[in-house]
């Protein structure tokens, strides 16, 4: 049995010389749900972009037993569903259907299968009947759900989310937490919403200045006020 995510000694420096990740190692088992927390600029988003081969640094990244390298990219991208922070960037197609169908079309599936995937992905996020809607006219919470559906339609083994609750009002946030709680796959969630992490994600990794500074049970880390404060975080 392979690990869902296996990162060893990953370092990444942006072209302008700014080091974003330094010797990051992280292993996540299948079915595990992990929060990735840390102040802005800690390297959270950079790390997430490595899981899918959009960025590639030094070190090794393996996802679902596949090395994240050029020859595996298509399979890696089907295995890891990456949900970006701003749904307006993720929903780039004219209609909701086109967006949710995008991944399956690029997986080379037939029309019937694509339609089946779209229907079930929209049902999974509670947005059945929205297929022909135009993304621009949706609310922030609805866009977020559709954004999640766009990766669910690819049947990923791992779901990676960047700040899923940012910008949502309390009701939309509550609905999203309920939705995420019901999804069975392995999950890595980058977030500032520690209350959500406590509720949904049993394990937490704290990233600061491109390094993993803590990794353990969410309850224990969130109880450690000194640790949180040292890394610019606040107890929920």
């Amino acid at each position: 049995m392979h690990h869902s995510i296996e990162i060893k000694d990953l370092s990444f420096t942006y072209p302008d010389g700014h080091p974003a990740l330094q010797n990051v190692s992280l292993t996540i088992a299948p079915g595990e749900k992990v929060a990735l927390v840390g102040p802005n600029g800690a390297g959270k988003s950079t790390l997430l972009l490595h899981l899918n081969g959009i960025l590639s640094g030094q070190g090794s990244v393996r996802v679902c037993g596949l090395s994240v390298a050029k020859e595996n990219l298509a399979r890696v991208r089907a295995a890891v569903g990456l949900v970006f922070q701003n749904p307006d960037d993720q929903l780039f197609s004219p209609t909701v259907f086109d967006d949710v169908a995008y991944g399956p079309i690029y997986q080379g599936l037939e029309r019937e299968e694509v339609e089946r995937r779209v229907t079930s992905a929209l049902a999974a996020v509670g947005m059945s009947g929205y297929a022909q809607r135009v993304s621009h006219h949706l609310s922030a919470g609805e866009k977020k759900r559709i954004a999640i559906a766009t990766v669910l339609s690819m049947n990923p083994e791992v779901l990676v989310l960047d700040e899923p609750t940012a910008g949502l009002d309390p009701r939309a946030r509550r609905g999203l937490i309920r939705l995420l709680g019901g999804l069975p796959m392995t999950m890595l969630v980058s977030t500032h919403d520690l209350a959500m992490a406590r509720e949904l994600l049993p394990r937490t990794v704290i990233l600061d200045e491109g390094r993993v500074v803590a990794d353990g049970p969410t309850e224990a880390l969130l109880a450690n006020a000194a640790l949180l404060e040292a890394h610019g975080l606040e107890m929920p």
Binding site: N52, V80, F84, I105, Y106
Partner: peptide, 18 residues
């Protein structure tokens, strides 16, 4: 960012549609 979102869903430079 859109390019990254497209890549992560399998975009390979070719435009495909049903």
């Amino acid at each position: 960012r859109i390019y990254a979102a497209m890549l992560s869903r399998g975009y390979d430079g070719e435009v495909r549609a049903l």
